[in-house]
Design a protein around this nucleic acid. Structure first.
Length: 345
DNA sequence: TTGGAATGGACAA
DNA sequence: TGTCCCTTCCAAT
């Protein structure tokens, strides 16, 4: 259940856990047996995200990087690529022997990558002492489509929309279709903000719908869509071509900030500190989100409770944090759209 | 125990 | 626009 920030985070995690390692690849569920066989025993040498797409590049096990020297990563065309799209409810689950900075405690419960929790954020932890015994990965839990096992960690994939082994050409074909990604290191190859602005302004479709179109901008999902439009004071139902270019540039810039923070911490928090008030009791009968997410927008310390993290997402019927008007919700192209009719016009 | 809902998208008509 | 797919979790029975 990720938006683009989660996938970028995953790409980084795969690099930290497995880069350079020869991996055992299998399909405990059995639905990816042939694909897993193509990758089993090869070396993970690339890990990239574009929008919500994750690409893992595998080389032959013999293609080992020079020890101590410059890493000799084979060109993309020489790799086999695992393309994964988590879709609505796909998830990666990690476990490890505790030696990794990412899987940070021996015997730590496996973390689901999604809304409630994710890979721990913050500085890398020192390596835990290695036991004498070889580490054994836990048994797969649930319907695990792919399992990657490295020296010290395991990654299990469940419920993906897409999971396939593809060539470099096929990777490029997918990327060519995607719009620019606000938090990719180099959004420019896809046209960057200029392409985003142009794509929106040539369309009569509502800006709320366009933000969810991965060909227009890659990586934005339902939460960032709702929240960035609120922060821009923009009515989601405005036709794309009626939105000033300057406003759209502001939306892009805001997404860069919000999604970078999301990728860094693993949680989406879009509220400014002065706008944070708990929803408890604010509107009897309205949904109340519980739990805690990490604070991530403005550098202030501490964490933000889940019911203070968003302006409008999942807050229909509750008073707008800024003006008090009840937040509205409607289905738009089969997805729920949330907005404040007063602040966004 | 069951049945929606969930931060998604491909495809057909 | 509608239909289907993939899987898990939690609130409602």
């Amino acid at each position: 259940m990720p938006e683009g920030h989660t996938v970028h985070r995953l790409a980084r995690t795969f690099a930290e856990l497995f880069a350079g390692q020869v991996l055992a690849v299998s399909s405990p569920q059995g639905r990816f047996t042939a694909g897993a066989a193509l990758l089993d025993g090869s070396r993970l040498v690339a890990s990239r995200a574009w929008g919500k797409q994750l690409f893992l590049g595998f080389a032959d096990a013999s293609a080992r990087p020079e020890p101590g020297g410059a890493p000799s990563v084979p060109p993309d065309d020489d790799l086999r690529w695992l393309r994964v799209h988590l879709g609505l409810y796909g998830a990666w689950t990690f476990a490890g022997d505790g030696s990794s900075a990412v899987v940070h405690a021996i015997g730590a419960p496996r973390k689901r990558i999604g809304e409630r929790d994710s890979i721990p954020a913050g500085p890398l932890e020192p390596l835990a002492p290695q036991g004498e015994e070889a580490w054994t990965p836990p048994a797969p839990r649930g319907a695990v489509r792919v399992r990657l096992v490295g020296a010290h960690a395991v990654a299990d994939l469940t419920g993906p929309t897409a999971c396939e082994v593809v060539s470099a050409d096929e990777v490029r074909a997918v990327e060519a279709r995607l719009g620019p990604d606000p938090i990719r290191d180099d959004p420019a190859p896809a046209g960057g903000p200029d392409r985003f602005v142009a794509a929106v302004r040539r369309s009569r479709t509502s800006v709320g719908q366009l933000l969810m179109n991965q060909d227009v901008i890659a990586g934005v999902g339902n939460i960032y869509r709702a929240e960035v439009l609120f922060r821009a004071g923009l009515d989601p139902l405005t036709a794309g071509r009626d939105v000033p270019a300057e406003t759209l540039r502001g939306v892009w810039d805001d997404l860069v900030v919000l999604m970078r923070d999301g990728a860094a911490t693993g949680a989406i928090v879009t509220t400014r500190p002065q706008d944070r008030l708990p929803d408890d009791g604010a509107h009897p009968g309205a949904p109340v989100r519980t739990g805690t997410v990490r604070q991530n927008t403005d550098g202030s310390a501490g964490s933000v409770p889940a019911d203070q993290a968003f302006y409008v997402y999942h807050r229909d019927g509750l008073p707008c944090r800024v003006c008090g008007t009840p937040v509205l919700m409607k289905e738009l192209a089969a997805r729920k759209l949330y907005w404040c009719p007063t602040c966004q016009r």
